[in-house]
Design a protein around this nucleic acid. Structure first.
Length: 478
RNA sequence: GCGCCCUUCGUCUAGCGGUCAGGACGCCGCCCUCUCACGGCGGUAACACGGGUUCGAUUCCCGUAGGGCGCGCCA
């Protein structure tokens, strides 16, 4: 009988929740759910200089938006400093660690000399066996772990397989600083152990750290958790993800108009696959997930594919929810006139959304497509639309305006019939009159079906917008 | 420099000794059509290179090349 699974996500609060962290959190979350276990959250805030409360809030918000919840209250690593020191002391007493009185300058020299002589820049262990009586005056020591000097340390990794490190390549690294605070390497091990973490899932930039951490586990006689080091995400050019690429916080993705379920689906497909399945729900993800199906190679972030997936989820989303997201997004991104237009034309926008859905890849595009509804008269006419409104086409619009005015009903069918009949009468293809109509009614060359547009904005507004165009045209040529 | 990891269409990937190397995005063409989308159909395009092992390698092993990560009193 195996222990219940406990995973953890351990961000350091020095900025937002970036896309790589979001995926790490996602995999920890999915795995915990799959195994019926828990995912804990630990804030690695031991770097007091760089950690901020705002960053903690941003990370929690980002996870919530993505739909990733965690069990128990987030744990502050900084708050556990006493416990870390306690373990370091135990290691000291058991002879598995020792005090080192080297000064930072001394260490810098050591590294520089090593580099100059072509040796790896590692601590040479000069205090490993020295007696405490040799300690210099006025120097506060650090505590270093006694790493094994021979043999292999193997990281048994569920993704990477057995990774072997030779002990001679590891030095006696610091576990407690001279001010008594723990280093990351030490705090992580103590926390993961105390939290009962059974599976460590993290970026493979930690793979070499894993070997060092195993040294501490061994010295304490603790079980080493299962490990899974997942590959990193690169930018479109194969290099490290930069802000230009996508290393923004997840809230930036929200502001760009992506839906959380789309991002989850996309992120899951970066480094993980379940056969040929491309689009799947989060429940399916949980059902299908396995650590062994994770890839070992890094992948590139591709906005084009994210757009495609997002388009899919927009198409299948509930219009009422989309409306709310549109309003929220307009507000958050400072699109004030859109915000006002969306709010004061709620019913019309709601009715229009099904027409907009297949045409948008992001919520921002959705908003853009809705603008014809609340645009102020006289409509701003885009350049390409203006080209459609020449003397001839405006004359047709004038004729159509009369026909529309005489119309009894105002439906897609009646409008369609009217325009088709007119086009046939004057010997034109439908497109020849429908396009100018679109230009006059929306100010653009693209929009939902033009008869749908007319029904949406209504008879009065349609005729008014037409007269805005026809009036000018008629005035100029009569 | 040292250590570790990685390498299938442009991108994300399937593949776990024998496949016409599959899917998705993108791109191109056709259909649908009042525009743009959506949808449908078709097409383009890949096993980094060199050695082994094997009857047979995309698949297993070793090199080479390329890329990534790590080597702090940062996390």
């Amino acid at each position: 009988m195996s222990k219940p699974v406990i995973t953890r996500f351990a961000p350091s609060p020095t900025g937002f929740l970036h896309i790589g962290g979001a995926r790490t959190a996602l995999f920890n979350w999915v795995f915990a759910r799959k195994m019926g276990g828990k995912m804990l959250l630990r804030i690695e805030d031991t770097d007091r200089e760089r950690s901020t409360e705002a960053a903690v809030a941003a990370i929690l918000d980002g996870m919530s938006w993505l739909g990733l919840d965690w069990d128990s209250a987030p744990i502050s690593q900084f708050a556990r400093a006493d416990r870390h020191a306690e373990i370091a002391l135990q290691l000291l007493e058991s002879g598995n660690a020792y005090k080192c009185y080297c000064t930072p300058q001394e260490l810098t020299e050591m590294r520089e000399r090593a580099r100059a002589e072509g040796r790896p820049p590692r601590y040479d262990g000069r205090w490993r066996d020295r007696d405490a009586s040799e300690a210099p005056e006025g120097v506060k020591p650090v505590v270093r772990i006694k790493a094994p000097q021979s043999g292999d340390i193997v990281v048994k990794d569920r993704v990477q397989g057995d990774v072997v490190f030779k002990a001679e390549n590891l030095d006696d690294f610091i576990i407690l600083r001279s001010d008594g605070t723990p280093t990351y390497m030490h705090a992580v091990v103590v926390d993961d152990h105390d939290m009962g973490v059974t599976h460590i899932i993290r970026g493979d930039d930690h793979l070499t750290n894993a070997a060092r951490q195993i040294v501490i586990y061994r010295a304490m006689g603790w079980d080493v958790p299962e490990m899974a080091h997942i590959p990193l995400i690169h930018g479109p050019d194969g290099a490290k993800l930069s802000k230009r690429h996508g290393a923004m916080g997840v809230e930036a993705y929200r502001q760009m108009g992506y839906l959380p379920e789309a991002l989850r689906n996309y992120l899951a497909r970066l480094g993980w696959a379940h056969g040929d399945d491309e689009i799947f729900s989060t429940d399916q993800m949980v059902e299908w997930f396995s650590l062994e199906a994770l890839n070992k190679g890094a992948s590139r972030f591709d906005f084009v594919k994210l757009d495609n997936l997002n388009g899919h989820y927009i198409r299948s989303a509930d219009p009422v929810r989309l409306y709310d997201v549109m309003v929220e997004t307009a507000s958050e991104t400072g699109r004030n006139s859109d915000y006002a237009g969306l709010v004061s034309n709620k019913d019309t926008v709601l009715a229009a959304i099904p027409e907009l859905q297949p045409r948008a890849k992001t919520v921002l595009e959705l908003i853009d497509l809705a603008q014809f509804i609340y645009a102020e008269r006289p409509l701003p006419i885009e350049e390409k639309a203006a080209q459609l409104l020449n003397q001839e086409s405006v004359a047709h619009l004038a004729a159509l305006t009369s026909a529309f005015s005489a119309l009894d009903g105002w439906s897609v069918e009646s409008l369609d019939g009217t325009v088709r009949a007119y086009a046939e009468t004057v010997g034109l293809k439908l497109g020849k009159v429908a396009q100018p109509l679109r230009a006059a009614l929306t100010g653009r060359t693209i929009s939902p079906g033009i008869f749908e547009v007319m029904v949406l904005i209504g008879r009065e507004e349609s005729l008014a917008r037409l007269s805005d165009v026809v009036g000018v045209g008629a005035g100029a040529h009569s």
